[in-house]
Nucleic acid binder design. Structure first.
Lengths: 361, 361
DNA sequence: ATCATATGTTGCAGTCAACAACAAATCTCG
DNA sequence: CGAGATTTGTTGTTGACTGCAACATATGAT
């Protein structure tokens, strides 16, 4: 458990300092002293250490406006530690090289047109991304120890993506599911920092969800929202079950569909409006089960579920109200993500940085 | 975060040693050296510390059978740190005073006959339990920060049990839900130690479930299994919703009922057999949603759900198979608890010890 | 009986963080 | 405009802890 001696202590404190700066941005040494509960002299020594190794940069003399000697500002050097983040969808692969502190240093996107995503990842991460300390891929589906057990969107079952990516790029990869990554992203870089338990719903060609509790994703935390059975014995689903949410929802599957439906509904198309309502109800019912089972205090509607939620909030809420206990419902906030389409990519990078910082301890 | 200096390090190591002994029982100093990764001399110093303070007892010279100087055996002194555990049910209150290392030092049980459980707790914990370092109460229901938000069994909603117990006994209390406590118990003192995610189902006068991931209960981890809606718009439930599992299950509610039903079914009563089957299916369907949302690798059927599972395993399994993805199902083990009725009490005590050991750091 | 083996014990050295005194840089008030 | 107040960085010292190595101890094997 607790490894060894005093140098372990030093490493821990150094890592804590880096983590603090990475998460909360540039701070003065005085603020760091307060935040970490360490002595001024200790902070000084740690900062000197990390400035020497190139992780930190110190800017002297920033006037605070109040009395006293101005404190030196400490900030991360982005290039000192970088992480490769990749988000895989059915139609495209997105890439970002993120530096310590959260700055995006590079960005790229490739359309797939039916090609294997792994090849695209190999191409897009061939440059400076080679220097990255960690590489993380976000995939919409059920992920278990690097293996994509099930993905409606990609049509994979039991694919060892971590191994495939490793043999293609020559580096090790962490694989997370898109929804959990987005939840991590919204928690760490979005507007959900006070959230104790954050449930992120991701609408792609399948429906998945991810849970973050106290800022940490839990092992096996990816939720196949689309395969919650809302209609026992209902329509056959591609997964082999019957009555899955994905199979039962009327308005479903592609961003274009939902746009179409909302446009039509806006123009007074009763059938479209009805379809949206029923879809919202289906979603709300499935959510009821997930909320009862996991007890979140915040739900974010991401991907095309954002549009569905915005145009069918009432049926979602009422179906949810019919299937969850008042206490669970009362503390629940429903809203849309602030990072838009970027959440999963940012969250994947944060997952990588968590590993980097853990590795410093 | 990381508090201060080298004495913090000492405290951490001391706590790690106590935790190791508490969880894995008496061990030799050589084994402790291996397990904690510390130096022999350090283990010696820590053990001397803790022997002085009365937490540990060292037994000299146990012959191992192999060559070399025999290692001294180190074990916890149960009375050195005790925890009060209480399990509250509708009809009775059970109490145990548990010592460091897990030994049960005292035990008591009181029938309620309609009296307020808090009074019973006050009476039963009036003796040596006063010296306990922590007091934990397990309650069947939805618990949030000491407040019982909802309990079908006790008929409570929004009762601040922690405050009530504190004013009755003059000590602070931690409140956990029975199912989560039982899950902790089965994980730490039962047979589920390898389980990554353990889901414990508790059948009392209501149905609750608890989840333990990597041995830790998560904040707000109690699941109101009985209020998973299995039949939208179905029978009215006491909670105000419609179609809850609790309301829909045919054989339900009391240990006597399930005994009656299994007896009748065993004697060839077709109606009873049918009722059991349908109840198993209802349970399986509700479980499907919970499994999809939480992804456990082990499910334990506790309380009277044990009997239901033993006599209706096939319908439970088939309904579960119809509502969960193959991958989630394949790694899932279903079984009954090994601690029987004691799980919640033992788990409550373990929850207390976790706090005690954390407090040593 | 002697040697090999495994473990506890003791003294020493290295490292680290806290503390206190001092230096530096800014603000405020007269 | 200048002296004191205020806040922060710096330096040298101190206390504490763990690791290491040598030694002591207790057992089994030959």
């Amino acid at each position: 458990m607790a490894r060894t001696g005093t140098e372990e202590l030093r490493r821990r404190n150094r890592a804590a300092l880096v983590e603090q700066l990475h998460r909360h941005g540039p701070q003065t040494r005085a603020e760091l002293t307060e935040a970490l509960g360490l002595n001024r002299s200790t902070i000084g020594a740690l900062a000197a250490d990390l400035a020497e190794s190139g992780h930190l940069h110190e800017t002297t003399g920033r006037s605070t406006g109040s009395a006293g000697r101005p404190s030196t500002l400490v900030e991360c050097v982005p290039k000192a530690a970088t992480v490769t983040a990749v988000e895989i969808r059915a139609d495209r692969v997105r890439f970002a090289l993120v530096g310590l502190g959260g700055e995006v240093l590079e960005r790229a996107e490739t359309a797939l047109d039916g090609a294997d995503p792994v090849e695209a990842v190999e191409v897009v991460t061939g440059g400076t991304a080679r220097d990255a300390l960690e590489s993380v891929a976000a995939v919409p589906g059920l992920v278990d120890a690097g293996v994509v057990a099930h993905s409606t969107e990609l049509g994979w079952a039991g694919r060892d993506l971590a191994a495939d990516l490793e043999s293609a790029t020559g580096r090790t990869w962490q694989v997370v599911d898109t929804a959990t990554a987005a939840a991590v992203g919204e928690w760490s870089r979005g507007d959900a920092h006070e959230s104790v338990k954050l449930l992120y719903l991701h609408g792609g060609r399948g429906l998945t969800a991810g849970l973050v509790a106290d800022g940490r994703a839990q092992r096996g935390g990816s939720i196949q929202l689309g395969h919650i059975v809302v209609q026992p014995g209902g329509r056959e689903c591609a997964c082999g079950l019957r009555g899955c949410l994905e199979a039962e929802m009327e308005v479903f599957g592609y961003a274009e569909d939902i746009e179409h439906a909302t446009l039509a509904a806006g123009m007074g198309d009763a059938a479209a409006r009805d379809g949206l309502r029923r879809s919202g109800e289906d979603l709300g019912r499935a959510l009821g089960a997930v909320v009862t089972a996991t007890g979140p205090d915040e739900i974010l509607f991401g991907g095309w579920l954002r549009e569905l939620y915005l145009s069918a909030a009432a049926p979602v809420r009422s179906a949810l109200a019919e299937t969850t206990l008042p206490h669970l419902r009362s503390r629940l906030r429903l809203r849309t993500p602030v990072l838009g389409d970027e959440g999963a990519l940012i969250g994947a990078a944060e997952t990588g940085f968590a590993a980097v910082i853990d590795g410093m301890r």
